[in-house]
Amino acid sequence: MDSRKYMSDAIRTESRDFDAMNTRLLDDGVKRLLHAGIGISTEAGEFLDALKKHIFYGKELDRVNLAEELGDLFWYMAIVGDELGIKFEDVMERNITKLKARYGEKFSEEKADKRDLESERKILEGQAFN
């Protein structure tokens, strides 16, 4: 499945019943982003919880659960992508371009500490999200 089809299929299962939300001052787009942001945080916490159980409590590493949480993260990211009108491929490409500018071909702690955020921002702004 390519990411465009995934995004299209994923957002079909999204509830947009914002009447229940006590956020009358926010437009629906911001509500979608807020819902997705909270969901991403929640699912990331569930991913970490599975790792915690393995590392600190000696439970078997539940790779099936980790993959399921990753899928849930994708679902919420599909909402963000749809709301911002961007494709996963564009985000992935832009991210790699930024990382290459930051590190070249290989990570180093020195380059991580001495990031040129202004140049990175120009890279991100120079590639339109369309």
Rank of each mutant, 00 (worst) to 15 (best):
I86K: 12
G45V: 00
K53D: 11
D116F: 04
A78F: 06
S41F: 08
F107W: 15
G104C: 06
G39N: 06
G81M: 15
I86M: 12
E60P: 08
K122V: 03
S119H: 07
Y76N: 03
E89H: 08
L61A: 11
S119V: 07
I79G: 04
L124A: 07
D82S: 08
I79A: 11
S41Q: 09
M92A: 12
I55L: 14
A101F: 14
I96T: 10
L84M: 15
I55W: 13
G37N: 06
K122N: 05
M77E: 12
E109C: 07
D62L: 02
I40K: 04
S119A: 13
E105M: 06
L66G: 08
E68C: 00
V91F: 13
S108V: 07
G58H: 07
K122H: 06
I40H: 02
D62I: 01
A36I: 05
Y57C: 04
A112M: 08
W75K: 14
L73P: 01
E69R: 01
E93P: 01
G104L: 04
I79R: 12
R63K: 14
I55A: 13
L84T: 11
E69T: 00
L34Q: 13
E69C: 00
K52S: 03
I123W: 14
E109K: 14
R32M: 12
L33N: 02
A78R: 09
Y103Q: 03
E60H: 06
K100A: 02
E46G: 02
A36R: 05
D82M: 03
L70C: 09
L48F: 08
F56I: 05
A112L: 07
L70R: 04
L66Q: 12
I96R: 15
D49E: 14
A44N: 02
V91Y: 13
D82N: 13
D113A: 09
N65F: 10
L84D: 05
A36N: 04
E105T: 09
F74D: 12
I38G: 04
R63I: 11
R102K: 15
R32G: 01
K122T: 04
H35V: 03
G58S: 04
D72M: 08
L66K: 12
N65P: 00
G85I: 05
E89D: 15
Y103K: 04
A78H: 11
S119D: 06
F56Q: 15
F56T: 13
E109L: 15
F56S: 14
E118W: 10
Y76T: 00
V64M: 05
K87H: 09
R94E: 06
L34G: 04
A36Q: 04
S108R: 12
L99G: 03
I86E: 13
A78C: 14
